Simulated assay, not measured.
Amino acid sequence: MNPSPTYVGLPIPVAANLTDTKYFFQALDNFSRVMAIRPGDRVLMLADPLLDPRVIDAVIGVAKSRGAEVRVYMEPSTQVTAVPEEVHAMLKKATFVVSTWFCSILDPLCINLRRAGQRWVKITYFRNLDLLHTPQARFPVDLIGEIIRGTAARYPAEGGFDLRFTDPRGSDFRISFTQEMRANQLATNRWRGQMTAEEDGCYVHYLPTHGPNLWDHNSVKNDFKAVVPMAGVLYPQWAVGFAKPFEEKIAVRFEGDTISAVEGTSEEAVILREMLVGGRMIEGGGCGFNPKAPRHTVYPAGSNAPGALHFGIDLAQPSDYIRRVMPDWEEPPVHMDLITLDATVTAGGNTLIKDGFLCALRDPAVVALAARYGDPVELLEAQVL
Score class of each variant (00 low, 15 high):
P5M: 05
I12E: 15
A27L: 01
F31W: 06
M45K: 03
L46F: 04
P49I: 04
P49W: 02
L51G: 07
D52Y: 05
G61L: 04
K64L: 13
M74F: 00
S77Q: 08
T81I: 07
T81A: 03
P84Q: 06
E85Y: 01
M90P: 00
T95P: 05
V97T: 06
V98P: 05
S104E: 00
D107I: 02
R114T: 09
W120Y: 01
I123G: 07
H133G: 14
H133M: 15
P135V: 10
P135Q: 13
F139L: 07
L143K: 01
G150N: 09
E158C: 05
G160Q: 08
F161C: 09
F173C: 08
E180F: 03
M181L: 08
A183I: 07
N184I: 07
L186Q: 02
G193R: 02
C202A: 03
L207G: 06
T209A: 11
G211I: 10
A226Q: 04
G241D: 05
R253C: 14
I259E: 07
I259W: 00
E263D: 12
G279H: 09
R280G: 03
M281R: 00
G285E: 07
C287K: 01
N290F: 06
A293M: 08
Y299W: 12
D314A: 09
L315A: 13
V325Q: 06
P327I: 04
D328H: 11
E330N: 14
E330P: 09
L338F: 12
A343W: 01
L352I: 09
L352V: 06
K354R: 11
D355F: 06
G356W: 08
D363T: 00
A365K: 15
A371G: 15
G374C: 07
D375Q: 10
A382Q: 15
Q383N: 14
V384F: 14
L385E: 15
